[in-house]
Simulated assay, not measured.
Amino acid sequence: MKIIKKIHTNGYRKKTQRNLVSKLKRMRFNARNESWEIQELKSLCVLYKKHIKAKSNLAKSLIKNGRKVILPAPVSIDYYQAPNYRTTNLFLSNITDCIVRAKRRVFIDFSATELISAAAMLSFLAQIETLVSMKHVQGNTPISFSHPKSKKVKSILNQVGFYNLLNKPVGKVEEFEDVNFWHHTSGLCADPSKARPMLDAISHEIKTEYSKKLYRGFIEAMANSVEHAYPTSGSCNKWWTFAGVKDETLIVVICDKGVGIPETLPHTQPASILSALLLKFNANFNQVKDSAYIQAATSLQKSSTHKKHRGKGLQDVMSVIRSTGTGYLSIFSNKGRYKYMGEKKALKESINDYTTSVNGTIIEWSIPLVVER
């Protein structure tokens, strides 16, 4: 009888411990929406419960400063949906904080990632390259990652150069039509001409009556990074871009990791002009939100450089949308977003403000190259 009771007790304890570990694993998964330090603590709880007999040795190993921090990537690395926007920004913030403040190495776990959208991918790529280029981490490998389980996510990371950036062998990659059309490049802010090979690669597909305006809009966005995004010189004062034609639609995404439009606009435009624009958009002068500054920037007719050929880039893109009645322009900058779109010949614009920042500016537009008259 005692033997049966002992077996029953041991079985109950093991089951209880398994349930506890499972609960802690769920906590670790849910910690994706929390800071990396909380994520790590919850991960350590799982390890601690799994290795109860080695408490002292485990405790010593966990506090080693050089231990990699395992960061699970979000299910959706995306900026277009509000919940994904917050999760993606927290993910990027955690990576940056680990490397810059805590001087820790990071291992990105892509096992749960199922979706990566264009704007968020470009911002992610730019952030990782910025971190890898920092002086205190050059020559080291502060970031490593797992192969995604999703074949499409792996294809995206390979297509945009993420594997090459972190020197990881890619292995077998499946091709997808909605991934392979992307061309990507980057360059120092002083040399927007680096984008020319990419533009040449898609130029034969954008020979429309609006091609000149679209090209000028692209170059203007590059020039804005040169002049405004980075007020001080640095080792990674760069721009990054994706561009491609899919289903007879031109899609362009441009990103910089500068100070953002809401920071530069009050310093580059006369107070009278800026006040008039903010008044036009019914902005609260006591607390001007980032989206209002972005909206004001799209309405400027002249560049702060006072050059006749400048300041028309966003206006050019918007004029194409107005003329065709279709397409969209989207601008994320710091904590705001502005969107201008044509849908069934009707024009709409919207603004959004968030609690977290993209830490820079992301300009994206999509223009159909064949328009029904």
Results as ranks from 00 to 15, higher is better:
Asn89Glu: 08
Leu300Gln: 11
Pro142Tyr: 07
Asp290Ser: 08
Asn237Tyr: 12
Trp239His: 06
Ser233Asn: 15
Asn158Glu: 13
Met134Ile: 04
Gly260Val: 00
Tyr340Lys: 05
Ile52Lys: 13
Phe285Ile: 09
Gly244Asp: 06
Ser333His: 01
Ile331Met: 01
Ala59Met: 10
Lys14Tyr: 15
Lys152Ser: 00
Leu188Cys: 13
Ser150Tyr: 05
Glu37Trp: 13
Asn94His: 00
Thr361Leu: 02
Ala243Phe: 04
Tyr210Ala: 15
Lys152Arg: 05
Lys49Phe: 12
Ser123Gly: 15
Met134Lys: 04
Leu47Val: 12
Val69Tyr: 12
His309Ile: 05
Gly342Gln: 08
Ser43Tyr: 15
Pro270Thr: 03
Ala297Leu: 05
Ser155Glu: 01
Lys25Phe: 14
His228Cys: 04
Ser357Tyr: 05
Lys213Asn: 15
Asn57Ala: 10
Gln81Glu: 13
Thr9Lys: 14
Leu92Lys: 10
Ile52Thr: 04
Glu114Gln: 14
Leu314Val: 04
Asp256Gly: 07
Thr268Asn: 03
Ala195Pro: 06
Met222Asn: 00
Lys2His: 11
Ile206Asp: 13
Ser333Phe: 01
Ser211Cys: 08
Asp78Met: 13
Asn10Gly: 03
Ser366Cys: 14
Lys2Tyr: 03
Asn334Cys: 00
Leu47Ile: 11
Val69Lys: 12
Thr232Met: 13
Asp290Lys: 03
Ser275Trp: 02
Glu263Asn: 05
Pro148Gln: 05
Phe218Ala: 03
Val358Leu: 00
Val371Thr: 14
Val46Cys: 15
Tyr354Gln: 12
Ser193Pro: 06
Leu24Glu: 03
His184Thr: 12
Val170Asp: 11
Tyr79Ala: 01
Lys207Glu: 05
Asn30Val: 06
Ile70Leu: 02
Val317Asp: 13
Ser144Ile: 08
Thr141Lys: 14
Trp365Gly: 08
Ile362Cys: 04
Lys280Pro: 03
Pro262Val: 10
Lys6Gln: 09
Arg67Gln: 04
Arg26Thr: 11
Met27Leu: 15
Asp353Gly: 12
Pro83Leu: 11
Arg196Cys: 11
Ser233Pro: 07
